[in-house]
Amino acid sequence: MRISNTAKAIVGGVSAGAAAAVTAVQDNVVTTGEGVTMILAVLGAWGITYAVPNRKQPEA
């Protein structure tokens, strides 16, 4: 199965953003710093995940 770099990056970004959001809403208040952390987590995951190449598929 071949997964594109874009799809891989989107899933990674959503996962990182969700993890940061769950941590931020523990006290039922999202501060500016927590919002910035969520945004940076998503952007960082997108950039890093998109930059890492997929493993080459073995030929059948």
Results as ranks from 00 to 15, higher is better:
1 M>L: 07
1 M>C: 07
3 I>N: 09
3 I>E: 14
3 I>L: 11
4 S>R: 08
5 N>K: 13
7 A>C: 11
7 A>V: 13
7 A>R: 06
8 K>W: 04
10 I>S: 05
10 I>F: 13
11 V>M: 13
11 V>Q: 08
11 V>D: 10
12 G>A: 10
12 G>V: 03
13 G>T: 08
13 G>A: 09
13 G>Q: 05
14 V>Q: 02
14 V>W: 10
14 V>K: 07
14 V>R: 08
14 V>G: 09
15 S>E: 12
15 S>Y: 14
16 A>F: 04
16 A>W: 00
16 A>G: 00
16 A>M: 05
17 G>C: 08
17 G>E: 01
17 G>V: 01
18 A>M: 14
19 A>V: 06
19 A>E: 03
20 A>C: 03
20 A>L: 01
20 A>V: 00
20 A>Q: 02
21 A>C: 05
22 V>W: 07
22 V>Q: 11
22 V>D: 05
22 V>H: 08
23 T>E: 06
23 T>P: 02
23 T>M: 12
24 A>Q: 04
24 A>Y: 01
26 Q>K: 14
26 Q>D: 15
29 V>P: 07
29 V>D: 12
29 V>L: 11
31 T>W: 00
31 T>P: 02
32 T>A: 11
32 T>C: 09
32 T>H: 07
32 T>D: 11
33 G>R: 00
33 G>P: 01
33 G>S: 07
34 E>G: 00
35 G>W: 00
35 G>H: 04
37 T>C: 03
37 T>G: 05
37 T>M: 06
38 M>K: 02
38 M>V: 07
38 M>L: 04
38 M>D: 04
40 L>P: 03
40 L>W: 03
40 L>A: 04
41 A>W: 01
42 V>G: 03
42 V>K: 04
42 V>W: 01
42 V>S: 03
43 L>Y: 03
43 L>V: 06
43 L>T: 07
44 G>P: 02
44 G>V: 01
46 W>C: 07
46 W>Q: 06
47 G>D: 15
47 G>P: 09
48 I>G: 09
48 I>P: 04
48 I>T: 12
48 I>E: 06
48 I>N: 07
49 T>P: 10
49 T>C: 09
49 T>Q: 11
49 T>W: 03
50 Y>D: 14
50 Y>E: 10
50 Y>R: 08
51 A>E: 09
51 A>L: 13
51 A>Y: 12
52 V>I: 14
52 V>L: 11
52 V>G: 10
52 V>K: 05
52 V>W: 03
52 V>M: 02
52 V>Y: 01
53 P>M: 05
53 P>F: 02
54 N>P: 12
54 N>S: 14
54 N>Y: 10
55 R>H: 14
56 K>M: 11
57 Q>L: 15
57 Q>S: 14
57 Q>Y: 10
57 Q>G: 14
58 P>M: 10
60 A>M: 14
